[in-house]
Design a protein around this nucleic acid. Sequence first.
RNA 1: CGGGGUGUAGCGCAGCCUGGUAGCGUACUUGCAUGGGGUGCAAGGGGUCGUGGGUUCAAAUCCCGCCACCCCGACCA
Length: 490
Amino acid sequence: MSKDFTTREENYSKWYNDLVIKADLAENSAVRGCMVIKPYGYSIWEKMQAALDKMFKDTGHENAYFPLFIPKSFFSKEASHVEGFAKECAVVTHYRLKTAPDGKIVVDEDAKLEEELIVRPTSETIIWDTYRNWIQSYRDLPLLINQWANVVRWEMRTRLFLRTAEFLWQEGHTAHATKQEAIEEAEKMLNVYADFAENFLALPVLKGVKTENERFAGAIETYCIEALMQDGKALQAGTSHFLGQNFAKAFDVKFTGKDGKQEYVWATSWGVSTRLMGALIMAHSDDNGLVLPPKLAPNQVVIVPIYKTDEELAKLNEKASEIKKSLEALNIRVKYDNRDTYKPGWKFAEYEFKGVPVRIAIGPRDLENGTVEVARRDTKEKKSYQQVDLAHKIEHLLGQIQSNLYQKALSFREQNTTNVDTWDEFVNQIEGKGGFVYAHWDGTKETEELIKDKTKATIRCIPLDNKKEDGKCILTGKPSTQRVVFARAY
RNA sequence: CGGGGUGUAGCGCAGCCUGGUAGCGUACUUGCAUGGGGUGCAAGGGGUCGUGGGUUCAAAUCCCGCCACCCCGACCA
C-alpha cells in the first residue's frame, strides 16, 4: 500500500500528495478541483470540528445554518467584497434539465432563473441580509453565530485539502453595538484559533494582522494565524476579520441604542477550513507517513497481537481485551487489530503510515514476562513496558507525544526564522531555506507587490506582539518603524 | 488562459518509433507453508488500450479532431 513512498527531500509536493492519498485521507473526485474526503480523513476533521465547536460554544456562540445559494444582487452591495470574490464564483443559471431530440440530457433553456444564484464562496452577504430582520435594538446584540458549511471558490489550481474548489469550513458572523466590542471579538476568536492550533494541532502559529493588500475583501482589519511548514513555506491557518460597519451599511442593519438613536451595527467574521488538515499533515509527518497528534488521532493506540497458533491467539485476545478496556476507561481511543488476514509486520507499517501515535505489540513472550512492546510514532522508539498499570503509563505517553510534537514544530520554526537587513540577504534567505523572514518594509502597497514579483515572498503578517524598531526598507531603503514577516506561502 | 506532459486491468507502468489476436509489477481470489517489522511458493480471475473520425486486408501502434487529468505560471483560505 505505501511502499515506494516519495520522501520529503525528493519532492515535497509529491510527498504531500502521496501521503494524503496513501494514508486514505482523501482523493481527487470525478469533479474538477473537488475532493472526496475518505473516512479516515473525515474522522480527523470531525475531531477538529468537535474541539473547535466546543471552544466556540464556550465563548458564547451558537450554531445556525444559512442557504448555499446567494442571489447575485447581494454581492453587488458591498463593493470591495464582490471585487474580491467575483473571479471565482460558481453560478446557477437554470433550474431544469430536459431530454433533447438526440436522447441526450441538456439544460432546458426555458428554465432560466430570473436572477442567477451564486454558490456561496463565503456567507457575509446572505447572513447580513438576514441579520437586518433580527436586529432592532441594542438588546438584540451581540449576535454571536457560527455556521458549519461547505463553500465553493472556483480556484484555477487545486491541491488536496490545501486548496479545493469546494471546501468545508466554519464561518462565524457576529454583530456588535460598538466598534471596540467587535474588535475584541475578532481578537478573541483569533486567540481561540491560536489555542486550537497549539493545543490540538500541536502547531505553533504567529498571530498578526494582514497588510491592506492581503486583507479579506470587505474587511477593515484581517487578523490571521500563520504556521510554518517543513519545506519552509508559510500556511495561513485561520483568519478573523473586523468588518467595521461595511456590511451593516451595505445591508442596512441598524439598531436603536439605549439613548434612542439609530446606529449601524459593527461586525466580525472568522473562519478555519479543511485546509487545517493540510497544515496538520505537513507540520508533523515524515518519510514513513503520517504523524498525528494524539488529541486528533482517530485511533490513539493500536494493539497488534503476534502469534502462531489459534491457542496463542485465544490467550492474546483475552489479554488484549483486558488492556483495551483499561485504556478505554481512561477515554483513550484504542483499536485491537487481530485480523488474521494480515501479518504483524504489515500491520506495523500500516499503522505507522497512518500516524497512529502509539502501538502496543503483544506476543507469547510478553504473556510469559508480563510485558508489552510499546512503540511511539513520533520518535519511532520501541520499549518494553510492564503490564502493571499500563493504561496510566500510556495516558502519560500520549501526553508526552502531544507536547513533543509541539516542541519539535516550535524549534523547527525557531530555526527557520531569521532577521535580515539587506536585499541580498533577503533574496538569499527566501530562495534558500525559506522560513519566516523578519525584515523592514516601507509600508507601501507598491513595495510589497514589487517584492512579491521579484521573490514570490509575501508579507504573511505584522505580528501582534511586534516591537517597534527603526530601520530601513530592504527594497527601497525608506524608513520603517517595525519588521514584518515575509515568506513564500501556500 | 499561456508553456510542458500524460491517458493501456483497482493502482503503478511497458508495448507505439518499425501496424499482425494485450503484457509486467502490485493489488485481488484459492491452496499450502509462514508469522516479534511490508512472507514465500503455486494456481486463477480481471482490460470498450480516454473519445470520435480517417488510412489499412489488419490500428494500443500511423494521421486528424475532441475530452480529461497532472506539472509550471497568473488567482487564492
